[in-house]
Simulated scan of single mutants.
Amino acid sequence: MAKIRTGRVGEQIKKELSQLIQTEMKDPRIGFITVTGVDVTSDLSQAKVYLSVLGDDEQKAATLKGLEKANGFLRSELGKRVRLRHVPELLFKFDESIEYGSRIEKLLGEIGDREDS
């Protein structure tokens, strides 16, 4: 039962954070961000927010700094939009799975090209 609730809360946080970051944030350090997932602990005290950022490593670092700086704003706005007794602490992490998947696809393509020649 608790896993279902944490999943629903995670999806709602993901939806609201995506909207907040795209429309409400004015920080120039924050570039194009996609919230790819949110993992919420079973006691709803922490939420790991997985992000995909368009750009190089320098832009990713600047985006992460901007989000850490805006953590309080995001939590307060999230509290207004999602009806929870305690809004979880937000921990931002980069989602490496997209880059990993594209790297594997590229390697498989290279192997296919070698077999054809």
Rank of each mutant, 00 (worst) to 15 (best):
M1Q: 13
M1Y: 11
K3V: 10
I4E: 14
R5E: 12
T6N: 13
G7L: 12
G7Y: 07
G7H: 11
G10M: 00
G10Q: 00
Q12N: 07
I13Y: 00
K14R: 15
K14C: 05
K14H: 07
L17W: 03
L20E: 03
D27I: 03
P28Y: 10
P28F: 11
R29D: 01
R29T: 02
I30D: 00
G31W: 05
F32N: 05
I33L: 11
V35G: 01
T36R: 08
T36V: 09
T36P: 07
G37I: 02
G37P: 03
T41S: 15
T41H: 13
L44K: 07
S45I: 09
A47M: 09
K48Q: 11
K48S: 10
L51C: 06
L54R: 09
G55C: 04
G55A: 03
G55Y: 02
D56V: 01
D57G: 06
Q59S: 12
K60A: 09
K60W: 06
A61P: 03
A62K: 15
T63R: 07
L64C: 09
K65F: 02
G66N: 04
G66S: 06
L67G: 04
E68S: 13
A70I: 01
N71G: 12
G72K: 08
L74E: 00
R75V: 00
R75E: 02
R75I: 00
L78W: 10
R81E: 03
R83V: 08
R83N: 14
R83F: 13
L84I: 01
H86A: 10
E89I: 10
L91V: 15
L91S: 14
L91H: 15
F92E: 01
F92L: 10
F94P: 04
F94L: 15
D95I: 06
D95R: 10
E96R: 15
S97K: 09
S97F: 07
S97R: 11
I98Y: 14
I98A: 14
Y100P: 01
Y100C: 06
G101E: 02
R103F: 11
I104W: 04
E105M: 06
E105T: 01
L107E: 03
L107V: 03
L108Q: 01
G109F: 03
G109P: 06
E110T: 08
I111V: 10
G112L: 12
E115V: 06
E115A: 12
S117T: 08
S117A: 14
